[in-house]
Structures are given as structure tokens and as C-alpha cells.
């Protein structure tokens, strides 16, 4: 394709079925026009990947980051749903044009962008509820994992050992579980733990604690929210369970009741 400028700001790219084109959370500004094939748009909502749209030829992906500016990460992932050909546009070719666009058109565009972000959030919130409700339907309402309800947090104070999921098995970090519910737990740990190993939202840990005598319970949970602990030098992590065996769920019994 012939373009203005010396280096070609437009490239044709081929993606195979399943390939990731844009990853949510990444910083990228390229814009893609779909030439052929179908592309799915996915958002991550509390660890569940939800498809929010299917796009086809002639449609654009990646325009939200471009319009929102350099500091915004990708708000969704894009994945090829079949073999696709895309045209990637280098953002520089459009940045100047966008800057020179009359203020009013830019304000109007910003208005719609804001609405789109808001509506997308409502859609993913709704989809997540639906997926959970379907999971409940399939597994039966007795399954503690599938309930839609907000859970009562049982306050405890239990020492636990934990380590990042991809760390060596002999690594032991110490923490205290402050409360636990069907959905997850609250853990406090020394701030120094986070100097050697990453403790940021999204990080996943193996956690092991003894709830009754000689009954160790293992679980996997992911940080959702991170804040300073009440005591100085501590961090408090709000975590959601990502995995627990049925045996361990039974052992936890009461603590997982709604």
C-alpha cells in the first residue's frame, strides 16, 4: 500500500486462529483494520475472560488506546477467531491529524469514548454474573464455588505459609489470614516479603494453613486488592480463590459457608 512519508506506516499482518493480537493491560498504540477474518474482543473480569464483541472485515481494533492517549493501557484483548489478515497502522500517521481535528470533533469523540468505556464495564459485569449463574446451574446450587451471593467473611487469625505459584517449592513466606469467605481471603504479610517477590494485584500464590489440628488446607489465590496493613511494615492483601480441591473445600467447611 502506498503511503505518505518515507517508512511505511502501514503493514499487512497475518494471524492464525487463536493468535493474540492485542493483550489487555499492555501499552501499545497501533491501530488495526481487519482485512479478512473474524476477531474476538475479550476483557478480563476477576480472572474470567469474557468475550464482549466479534469484529469482522472493515472494522478497526485498538482505536480506544489511540484516542485515550499514550498513558492508557489496552482496555481489552483481541484474539483471532479464524485465520485473519490485518492492516496495522502506525499511530504517528494519525496523531497529527487527530491533533489538528477541530476541538469540537475531538470533544465529541472523547464523549463517546467515555460512554464506551462505561458501557463495556457494565457489559463485562453483567457477563460475569451470567457466567457464574450458568456455572451454578450446571454444578448445582450446593456447590459453594458457584454462588452469586456476597459472602459473609468469617474472621480468624491464622498463620499461613505461602509462595508465588511459579517459585521453587521449598520457598516459604509467612503471613496471617485475617478473614476468609467463599470467595477468597484477606491476608496480612510483612512488607519485606514484597521486596524479594512480587506482590501486586493479579499475582497468584499457593497458600497453606492449618485450620484444624493436623489438617493442612492448600489453596491458590490471586491478589485483587493491595493496601497497607494496620500495623506498620505490613501489607494487607484482598485475595480471590483461583483453585482449591474438593477435599480442601470440605476441610474448610464452615469457613466457606455463605
Amino acid at each position: 500500500m502506498k503511503t505518505e512519508g518515507k517508512i511505511s506506516p502501514v503493514a499487512r499482518l497475518k494471524y492464525a486462529n487463536g493468535d493474540l493480537i492485542i493483550k489487555e493491560g499492555d501499552f501499545g498504540l497501533s491501530i488495526y483494520e481487519i482485512i479478512s477474518g473474524k476477531v474476538g474482543i475479550f476483557v478480563d473480569s476477576s480472572g474470567t475472560e469474557i468475550q464482549v464483541a466479534t469484529l469482522g472485515p472493515g472494522m478497526i481494533i485498538g482505536e480506544m488506546s489511540f484516542l485515550a492517549g499514550t498513558s492508557s493501557p489496552r482496555s481489552a484483548s483481541a484474539r483471532a477467531l479464524e485465520n485473519c489478515t490485518l492492516e496495522a497502522w502506525h499511530p504517528n500517521m494519525l496523531t497529527t491529524a487527530y491533533k489538528q481535528m477541530p476541538t469540537i470533533l475531538r470533544l465529541i469523540t472523547g464523549n463517546s469514548l467515555k460512554s464506551l468505556v462505561r458501557v463495556n464495564e457494565m457489559v463485562s459485569g453483567f457477563s460475569l454474573k451470567k457466567i457464574r449463574a450458568e456455572a451454578e446451574h450446571v454444578q448445582g446450587s450446593s456447590d459453594p464455588w458457584a454462588s452469586k451471593r456476597k459472602f459473609y467473611r468469617k474472621e480468624i487469625d491464622k498463620e499461613c505459609v505461602y509462595r508465588p505459584v511459579n517459585s521453587p517449592k521449598n520457598l516459604k513466606l509467612f503471613g496471617r489470614i485475617n478473614d476468609i469467605s467463599r470467595g477468597g481471603l484477606q491476608m496480612v504479610a510483612k512488607t519485606s516479603n514484597s521486596l524479594d517477590y512480587s506482590h501486586v494485584p493479579g499475582d497468584e500464590f499457593f497458600i497453606s494453613a492449618q485450620f484444624k489440628e493436623r489438617q493442612k488446607v492448600n489453596m491458590t489465590a490471586k491478589i485483587i486488592k493491595l493496601q497497607k496493613g494496620e500495623k506498620s511494615g505490613t501489607i494487607s492483601m484482598g485475595m480471590t480463590f483461583t483453585h482449591m480441591t474438593h477435599e480442601d473445600q470440605k476441610r474448610l467447611g464452615f469457613f466457606l459457608m455463605p
Binding site: I31, I60, E63, L67, A97, Y98, L105, T109, S112, L116
Partner: peptide, 8 residues
């Protein structure tokens, strides 16, 4: 640019 905004 028009394509991009129309797409939005």
C-alpha cells in the same frame, strides 16, 4: 481517522 472514529 474517519474510519477510526466511526468504528468507535
Amino acid at each position: 481517522l474517519k474510519k477510526l472514529i466511526s468504528s468507535l
